[in-house]
Simulated scan of single mutants.
Amino acid sequence: MDDEPLTEWAERRDAKIGRLRAVPVVPGNGPRASHLHPDAPRAIERWNGHTWELYGFAAGLAEAQAVLYPEAGKPAPSGPVPKPLGPGTGKHRKPRAPGPDSGSRTQT
């Protein structure tokens, strides 16, 4: 049996400490998805390594996202935009259209 060493597991677990999440405060056991109740207040929870503990409150989805993703409010750096895909052929890319020089050649 190939078990992961305990030190690697502990490092992976400890890397998640301090992670935040926003949970909508809605009555009952109904849907808790953020897009269903964007104006509902949110409880901001923090992972302490063992359980989620209360960290704060937000008035709605927009305020909760500002707490969870503070870097999203910063302006993007200006400069040249890199090409998302480089040249080449990949599994999901369209094949190149045949050009005038790439016709079939017959040997005689």
Results as ranks from 00 to 15, higher is better:
M1P: 02
M1R: 02
D2G: 02
T7V: 04
W9M: 13
A10I: 10
A10G: 00
D14Q: 08
D14F: 00
D14L: 00
D14A: 15
A15L: 10
A15P: 02
K16I: 06
R19Q: 15
A22C: 04
V23C: 06
V23Q: 10
V23H: 10
V25Q: 11
P27Q: 06
N29A: 13
P31Q: 02
S34V: 01
S34Y: 00
H35S: 14
H35W: 14
L36P: 02
P38Q: 07
A40R: 03
A40C: 10
R42Y: 10
R42G: 06
A43I: 03
I44S: 03
R46A: 03
R46L: 11
G49A: 04
W52V: 02
E53W: 03
L54G: 04
A58M: 09
A58S: 13
A59N: 12
G60L: 01
L61G: 06
L61V: 00
A62I: 06
A66Y: 00
V67I: 15
V67M: 14
L68S: 09
P70H: 14
E71S: 13
E71D: 15
A76S: 02
P77Q: 12
G79R: 01
G79A: 05
G79F: 07
G79K: 01
G79T: 04
P80C: 02
V81I: 15
V81H: 09
P82T: 03
P82F: 02
K83E: 02
L85C: 04
P87H: 04
P87V: 01
G88V: 07
K91M: 07
K94M: 01
P95M: 14
P95W: 07
A97H: 08
P98Q: 13
D101L: 11
G103N: 14
G103A: 14
S104D: 09
S104Q: 06
T106A: 01
Q107S: 09
